[in-house]
Write a protein that binds this DNA or RNA. Structure first.
Lengths: 109, 109
DNA sequence: ACCGGTACCTAGTTCTACTATGTAGTGGTA
DNA sequence: TACCACTACATAGTAGAACTAGGTACCGGT
């Protein structure tokens, strides 16, 4: 992963994962695959699991263990009310930053 | 500063400062003021100075000391060729991330 | 003599992504 | 049987960047 991207993902990756969970529960391995399909090809698997532990401890998601046909049991994450609230704040923060940056880019700065 | 914003600024603040320096040299105190005017009201002064040290050590800016009428001498930073290259890469990284996020938001995810 | 504004600097803390590695279950195949 | 690939989760240690919380210094006005 490029260093710039690594740094830029700090703070946004969590929002991205919360967004992925909107309307659709998912488990860690699946989320990693989804992220890679969306272009984040170099996301480290360990990064995703650590993030999931974090958002679970923050109480943003509910967790359920389900057996898998193909390996160890999956931990399925569902966005809860607090998670939705956090995601909302994330979009607000993102919008603010995004607008400032587009402004700067427009100014040719 | 909100925690979300603090994390999200990681990686982007450097780009923002490089962008501010495009076409106009500036010194630290001035950059801090500029950032606050642009809405980053809670940027810590120390953060800016640390960042300036970093981009100087990375060779992205040239530095010149100029006397001030109002206080200690100013350290004026000018974007150099390498800095412009870095800024370019920053915009590329930003564009990628920005597009992915807008996509996610559009999908209502 | 003091204070506010200008101007710069830094040691230590916190948070997040990465590196590197380990553990397990399942199915296929040599 | 032994091995390997894929699925699936987990974590200890590292690096990098912004913040906290100070400090130094120069100038003008009261």
């Amino acid at each position: 992963m490029g260093k710039q991207m690594t740094e830029m993902l700090k703070g946004t990756l969590e929002g991205i994962v919360l967004a992925l969970l909107t309307g659709k529960a998912a488990y860690g391995y699946e989320i990693t695959t989804l992220l890679r399909e969306q272009g984040f090809t170099e996301i480290a698997e360990g990064t995703v699991y650590a993030l999931l532990v974090r958002i679970e401890q923050k109480g943003l998601v509910d967790v359920e263990k389900r057996p898998s046909e193909k390996g160890p049991p999956r931990k399925v994450y569902t966005l809860n009310t607090q998670g939705e609230k956090e995601l909302n704040e994330f979009w607000n923060t993102w919008s603010f930053l995004s607008e400032r940056l587009e402004q700067l880019r427009k100014e040719g700065k």
